[in-house]
Design a protein around this nucleic acid. Structure first.
Length: 422
RNA sequence: GCGGGUGUAGCUCAGUUGGUUAGAGCGCCAGUUUGUGGCACUGGAGGUCGCCGGUUCAAAACCGGUCACUCGCCCCA
């Protein structure tokens, strides 16, 4: 509208939307704590290699979709586009590979230079967990169950479907990749233009192409699950047995793939149809090769991340935390006494709003709209008698109570009682 | 990066084949109510019609560009 607008792909989080964000983040924190994940945070920017090494220096993602810049010291830095690489980097640089396994929860802003769309911002927020150390499939099961519990606590799990696939270990995937390329090359001229380039750059991604012609060709393509070796099959079977035993519903999705080499075995996404094209609400998988690619020792890992904005769109409005008690002055003679009483009541643990402008009627109206339930009304008349008026904004009843300038405990008790009433 | 749609008051929107003072509802402010909210009524403030340029006697409307939002593609660590 005017020149003063937020930068493209960013948005202010005003109290109403902030409340929904907090609801989502708090639910994730609570659910992950139940599984023993501990909250941590990594810096919002890192040396660019942290993100570029696992992806390949020249990849489109690195060159076109990151916010990278040189600082005044000439270091090349990147605003984090995701948090897994940062967590793994923290594990390596902190020497934490001595203390495996590690279970971490994080929440915070991420940055990707992409064209904004519904559920796709340039600054967005994620919550996530990373389970570092175990290669046991029960670790995969635990994080998936944790994700399901998180979504359930938000009341959105019923709107989502859990898609699950196995990418197999490195050997399995290499064999499949070869077979897929061989098959697709015989159709190379019939593939969509996008898929022609994918064939050279990232052939597995052709599997989730939306092009109808591509999909027809894929009907008879070799299937990833036929190329899994015994180790890979056992890992997947054990995971699905655990999910079934715990009652976590899932669907097999052979087209759910990850393009990068450090992924292996489990890939999963919770997907909703109610958000249009950006329907993945929580996604993750196993990344046993990532730590090594970052220059550390080989450490297995599995985790997920969820988009806070997307989940916030699915959540009903959350309540904004306003004080339920306001002190309203009837005239300027009560200003200082009101300020003093407000501080005393805050010391007593009561949230107090102290509006400073407007006539009595105005203050009451605003307090009512803001959700205030009890108003403490002070004026020079009351001060002269050392009293205040305690007004219940629900039913309009009002009583005059004594005010001890040095001890508000009696008044605090009366206020607390008034808030208990329905 | 590619294609479609949309930009009018704080918000949601109307605005006739281009025609002179651009409207409504909600919200906001004030009054009816001289220290007391919700309801009602009355009045009021608030807009260079996203921005720049063009066509025309005349542009919110038509044309071009640009910015933003939006939907899809791409990408999705």
């Amino acid at each position: 509208m005017s020149r003063l607008q937020p930068a493209r792909g960013t948005a202010d989080l005003l109290p109403d939307s902030m409340a929904k964000h907090r609801l989502v983040i708090d639910a994730a924190r609570t659910a992950s704590a139940r599984y023993g994940f501990q909250e941590m945070a990594t810096p919002i920017f890192e040396f660019s290699e942290v993100f570029s090494r696992p992806l390949g220096e020249g990849s489109d993602i690195v060159t076109k979709e990151n916010y990278s810049f040189a600082d005044r010291g000439g270091e090349i830095l990147t605003l984090r586009p995701e948090n897994t690489a940062g967590v793994v980097r923290a594990m390596i640089s902190g020497g934490l590979t001595q203390s495996l396994p590690l279970k971490y929860f994080y929440a915070g802003p991420m940055f990707r230079y992409e064209r904004p769309q519904k559920g796709r911002m340039r600054q967005f927020h994620q919550v996530g967990i990373e389970y570092l150390g175990p290669d046991d499939s029960l670790a995969d099961a635990e994080i998936i169950a944790c994700g399901a519990r998180f979504l359930a606590s938000l009341g959105v799990l019923d709107d989502c479907e859990l898609h699950l696939n196995s990418l197999g270990d490195g050997d399995s995937r290499a064999a499949y990749r070869e077979a897929l390329i061989e098959y697709l090359e015989t159709f190379a001229d019939q593939l969509s233009d996008d898929s022609k380039t994918r064939l050279a750059v990232n052939p597995l991604r052709i599997l989730d192409s939306k092009d109808a012609g591509d999909r027809a060709i894929l009907q008879d393509a070799p299937r990833l699950q036929d190329y899994l070796n015994d180790v890979s099959k056992a890992h997947f079977a054990d995971l699905t047995a655990a999910l079934n035993g715990a009652g976590v519903a899932w669907v097999f999705d052979p087209l759910l793939v990850r393009g990068l080499d450090y992924y292996c075995h489990t890939a999963f996404e919770f997907v909703t149809t109610s958000l249009g094209a950006q329907g993945t609400v929580l996604g993750g998988g196993r990344y046993d090769g990532l730590a090594e690619m970052l220059g550390g020792p080989k450490v297995a890992g599995v985790g997920w991340a969820a988009g806070v904005e997307r989940l916030a769109m699915l959540v009903e409005a959350a309540s904004v935390n306003n004080p339920k008690v306001a002190i309203l002055t009837a005239d300027d003679g009560a200003r200082q006494a009101a300020f003093r009483l407000a501080e005393q009541l805050r010391d007593a643990g009561i949230d107090i709003d102290l509006p400073t402008s407007g006539a009595m009627g105005k203050k009451l109206k605003k307090a009512d709209k803001a959700g205030v339930r009890t108003a403490v009304i002070m004026g020079t008349d009351e001060l002269a008698k050392n009293t205040v008026q305690l007004r219940n904004l629900g039913d309009g009843s009002q009583q005059e109570l004594p005010l001890d300038p040095d001890n508000c405990s009696g008044l605090a008790a009366a206020i607390a009682e008034s808030l208990l009433a329905p």
